[in-house]
Design a protein around this nucleic acid. Structure first.
Lengths: 361, 361
DNA sequence: TTGTACGCGTTATCAT
DNA sequence: ATGATAACGCGTACAA
């Protein structure tokens, strides 16, 4: 019944791929235990009980042969891959690594593997990556700021998806993230209370919610008589923050506070501001967004907004798992993560009139 | 021949998992094109050519039905999953994210998906994670500093593996990494030339090559009359660097330079040193290891050793791909990545006799 | 309680 | 040049 390879099989060493030792199959276990494959299968995952004697023999055979079921063969039957995909926009951004970290634990608990894709710049084209991924996973966690094309495709597919960062446009779907506008408004109020009057926002044109943060900032300063200007960078990186620093700081009307779209931009901005001979926060306050851990190690340390990156990942994964399990409640709805302003040394109060005189409170 | 589901299938809406729309199979395509499944298969990936007419019909059917092959079914017969696993020790460490980034591109080029696992502390047990992963991938990229248990298991399995960080103990295997001892010696020589004489090394007991770096450091100071002391932290993190700072710096015999096992520890050390009222680098020089990008944004910026994280990931993936392809040359051998000292503001020369007098060169 | 047999979607072999 | 069909390893309805 078992097709043993002939002892004198033709030499295969010339074939391209090395022949892998065949792993034990459910049939091997059944044979070793003297039962049928059905018995083995039911015992191992059906949860059905058998006579003490049979269970013992099967368990022993499994141990002896080091058997574990072939996920592909199982997947063909069950329609499940046992994998979930997570797509990030840049693994090197600590915001995303925290997100991944947050998603890892519930995934591991549910016995799901993480199929990971980074679609930063030239790394991989969004749509094909998504399409390839979707054949190998039971569900996806993706950024809500994918291309419209990618979003549209996901909308038509019936793959369980949870978006992070915010709800994607108008779709009826499931998402987890902060209220970008409200969070930015909180940060804005902090700056307003500190007496700032000449603001710059360094946005990131690639992010859908850069605009929301800008609106939140404006909202916070409504009626204050403060001036708000906006710049945009093409990539949310420290390098871009460095590059745009002189444009932002050395213009005709120098700002007394700069709000960056995220902490990476803020980091570059902070370094370059000091390189330009300005003092932070005495000459200008600088803030970021996301609360990446490295904002603590600059000097001054970076004031920022905690966007709950890790919690976002965790909640997104839990939602996805529920969704994969068929929970109808998880099919749609936006879950809000609480955000809060983290005040550190890079922001400082301004005296009512003159400038750069140190703390006011 | 084709078993179409009956139009009036029993209602399945009560079953736990939502019924997923069935994707088009190769049989659907074959039927639509009026050819056999064999023809479709060969045309799509065998590379075999057919009459213009047949190819046209097949291509059309594929387009119409949005067909793409089922990776699980394909894997059953080819024995390939199309995935490679990458196991990191902590996603939040930028060293590892750079490694992942480096590995991503060649993987994508080869059409391989990345199955990712983070085995930081309590996140996931090493061996079971590895075992689960190994059934779902064609090869693995793992740290050479896994547990002995995990390493031993990998040794007996015939899964293609490439280790990063250095060669694991004594095994005959394939690995990519730097020469930790030599790299540390380079850094040591830099410090020696700067006139440092009271050194501290903050090692990480969990890393196999922390010891090698310590040896390299000692080697650099051989015959210099300098004192070298060693501390150890239990986790390679900024928090641990902070925690151990006072012990390292405020002892009876204060050091004039501290070398940390990696940049994260150095970051914590740097911050806390300044919090303790010491000036870096005037009172004490501090260096890290790995050249994570955030070392540029502290002040002073962190002197470190570039360990080629991204290049390591890239080379490891290329080796793995060769190994999966059956290239016998990739079966074993240690590939060395060049490392270099990155001198920044956190190290400063010491005058021959007195201390803390500023630059000597 | 246990076993048989079929089907999942694909590729490879062999026949035409 | 094209087609029929046997695997691949598993889960499960159904038969015993």
């Amino acid at each position: 019944m078992n097709h043993e390879p002939a002892p004198d099989a033709p030499d295969l060493s010339a074939t391209a791929a090395p022949r892998r030792r065949r792993a034990a199959t459910i049939r091997d276990v059944a044979q070793a235990a003297g039962v049928s494959t059905a018995t083995v299968s039911k015992f191992l995952n059906g949860g059905q009980r058998f006579t003490r004697e049979v269970e013992e023999r099967v368990a022993q055979a499994v141990r002896d042969l080091g058997y574990s079921s072939n996920p592909m063969a199982r997947g063909m039957i069950t329609g499940r891959t046992g994998n979930v995909g997570i797509v990030v926009l840049d693994v090197r951004n600590p915001h995303f690594t925290s997100l991944i970290r947050g998603a890892s634990r519930p995934a591991a608990e549910a016995g799901l593997n993480l199929l990971f894709a980074d679609i930063a710049e030239g790394l991989a084209p969004e749509l094909p990556t998504l399409q390839a991924l979707s054949r190998r996973v039971d569900g996806l966690i993706v950024s809500a700021r994918l291309s419209d094309e990618a979003l549209a495709w996901l909308g038509t597919s019936d793959m369980p998806v949870v978006y992070y960062g915010g709800p994607p446009a108008q779709q009826d779907c499931s998402s987890v993230g902060i209220d970008n506008r409200a969070a930015a408004a909180m940060l804005g109020r902090h700056l307003r209370e500190l007496g700032h009057r000449r603001l710059r926002y360094v946005g990131f044109s690639g992010a859908r919610w850069s605009q929301e943060r800008w609106l939140g900032l404006q909202q916070a300063f409504e009626g204050s008589g403060a001036e708000l200007h906006r710049h945009d960078v093409a990539e949310a990186s420290a390098d871009e923050g460095e590059r745009i620093a002189s444009e932002v700081l050395l213009g005709a009307d120098a700002p007394d506070a700069v709000v960056a779209y995220n902490d990476l931009i803020a980091l570059g901005l902070l370094g370059q501001t000091q390189a330009l001979g300005l003092s932070v926060p005495r000459d200008v306050s600088i803030t970021g967004f996301d609360n990446i851990v490295y904002g603590r190690y600059t000097s001054p340390a970076l004031t920022t907004v905690d966007s709950g990156s890790e919690q976002t990942g965790e909640r997104a994964m839990r939602r996805l798992i529920a969704r994969i399990g068929g929970d109808p409640a998880a099919r749609s709805g936006h879950e809000l993560i609480a955000s809060r302003v983290i005040v550190r040394g890079s922001t400082l109060g301004r005296p009512a009139v003159s400038r750069g005189e140190g703390r006011t409170r």
